[in-house]
Simulated scan of single mutants.
Amino acid sequence: MTTTSPIRIGVMGAHSTGKTLLLRRMEMELRGHGVPVARTGKLGRRAAQTGLPKMQHHTVASTEWIITQGIADEIAAGAAQQPQSVSAVLADRASWDALAYFNAALAWRQQQVPRAERERLRLLASTQRYDLLLATVLDPAVPVERKHDYDSRYRTLVDRHTHELLAEEDIPHVRVTSDPDSQRNAIERALQLCLKEAVV
């Protein structure tokens, strides 16, 4: 069997909509079927540790950092997987996610930035390709843990801008709701994708 590039699976969506948990379950399922997996993430926390703003305070600079650092993490994770014949990189916050958060921050602050800056960020996000992109859907009925002091309006804006961005850019993706069947379907699609590649 010839060596192939790792399968890239990305997830995006508003905070506390189950992205990390979904990828954790997906990782366990893939490993259970013998597929080597690497997972990236914690970009928001790492950006904040460098002194960059987050959430509704996102700027062009913080968005650019998250997009480029996320891409670098995914490339490094994929390189570490070689020379496996079939492997997967799970990206917790796909490149488009940072742009959706930024657009939501601008809407929250009722602020504009130059079109050239917005286009540059869009081009940066578009450089990354995913074999499977998952977009979680905010369910207001699901309570958020008390330790998270989120601005509910901003969280709703992130959800809206996530799905608007995917539609505007015509990006193939799978919507994942809080329904267990929807989550199982997402995991099954990832598993089928990897196992199909394994027999090619």
Rank of each mutant, 00 (worst) to 15 (best):
V60T: 10
V35S: 00
V199F: 10
K19R: 08
L52C: 14
L138C: 06
A100Y: 06
A91M: 13
G34L: 10
I67N: 04
A80H: 10
E169P: 05
F102T: 04
L195H: 13
R45H: 12
S182V: 08
A61C: 15
D92W: 04
V144N: 02
Q81R: 06
L90I: 11
P140C: 03
G41Y: 08
D149N: 14
Q192L: 08
V60I: 09
L30Q: 01
S87A: 10
R115K: 03
L157I: 10
R24Y: 05
A167Q: 12
L166M: 07
K196T: 15
A141K: 11
D149F: 10
E27G: 13
V86T: 09
E74H: 11
L23T: 03
L23F: 02
L99D: 03
R175H: 05
L138P: 13
A88Q: 02
V113H: 06
E197I: 04
H173D: 02
M26D: 07
L52V: 15
L123E: 06
T63M: 12
V37K: 00
Q112D: 09
Y154F: 11
R153L: 05
N185C: 09
V37R: 00
C194K: 07
A104H: 06
S95D: 08
I75G: 03
V137N: 02
I171N: 01
Q69D: 12
D151Y: 05
V142A: 00
A14E: 00
R8Y: 13
Q49P: 06
A14D: 01
S178H: 08
T63N: 14
E29M: 11
H33R: 12
P36S: 09
G13W: 02
I187G: 03
R155Y: 02
E145Y: 07
A80I: 12
T17G: 02
Q110V: 14
A91L: 11
R155S: 05
M12F: 00
P140A: 03
G70E: 13
Q82M: 10
H15Q: 12
A76P: 07
W65N: 15
E145F: 07
P180V: 05
A135P: 05
A47N: 04
I71C: 05
L30I: 05
E188R: 13
I75Q: 11
R122A: 10
H163I: 10
R153M: 03
N185L: 11
E168G: 09
D97F: 02
V176M: 04
L165F: 08
P114K: 00
G78W: 01
A107N: 04
A61I: 15
